[in-house]
Design a protein around this nucleic acid. Structure first.
Lengths: 109, 109
DNA sequence: TTTATTTATTGCAATATTACGATTAATATC
DNA sequence: GATATTAATCGTAATATTGCAATAAATAAA
């Protein structure tokens, strides 16, 4: 099939997995890291920094934009991208809550 | 293509994305949540709890095991699964470091 | 030994993802 | 206006993922 059965899972479970999925590609990780490192907008320098074709980068940027993690502003012929702070914070909260789960000592084999 | 070009990314970038990818499916999120909730091993109760076929669950368990997030111990005819605490902690560290990045105020558009 | 019970594996079909060349659209610059 | 420059989109190919039925393997119970 290839089609995830989202209906049988809770909203939170789906939310966690969707957030994780968007981080689940090194190119998107690299894009986000660059935006944090520069600590401002980046206008079109992704293609030269990351070794992927322009069309491919554009596709990854679209996915990040669709998930709301970045936003782009048109600036003449180029587009300036930056982190969407509110949404990043929201994702951080959701993911951290999941990751921070813990077990009591020696609870299992 | 469909083949991620891991070679052009850093080890850290690949590590983050691989960890995220394994969390990137609600069934695997559900399995992990159950293990944390029960706070001990689970022997074969996944299929009844999650609404997916036995073969599918087994496949997801294998992926989690391959990533080292869970470990299984054979217990007669059934297998008891539990969280691999050390590896979970390691993943938490890697992911948290990535998620905790922050921007200075008003750094962008 | 025969018969459950339980999990892993295999084989398959359907959908998703990744990547890129080519093209399009939009604005700058000449 | 004609020509660059930049980013998005389209089309396509290759690989990955998801899901399940059927089967295999391994142990427990009768």
């Amino acid at each position: 099939m290839g089609l995830t059965k989202t209906a049988i899972f809770s909203d939170t479970q789906n939310e966690i997995s969707v957030f994780a999925k968007v981080i689940g590609h090194p190119a998107r990780v690299a894009i986000l890291e660059q935006l944090f490192k520069i600590d401002s907008c980046i206008c079109g320098d992704f293609v030269s920094e990351i070794g992927l074709a322009q069309a491919t980068i554009s596709q990854h940027l679209r996915e990040l934009k669709q998930m709301g993690l970045i936003k782009g502003t048109i600036e003449g012929t180029s587009v300036c991208y930056c982190i969407h702070r509110e949404n990043w914070t929201k994702m951080k909260k959701v993911m951290t809550q999941f990751l921070d789960q813990d077990l009591s000592e020696d609870s299992c084999c």
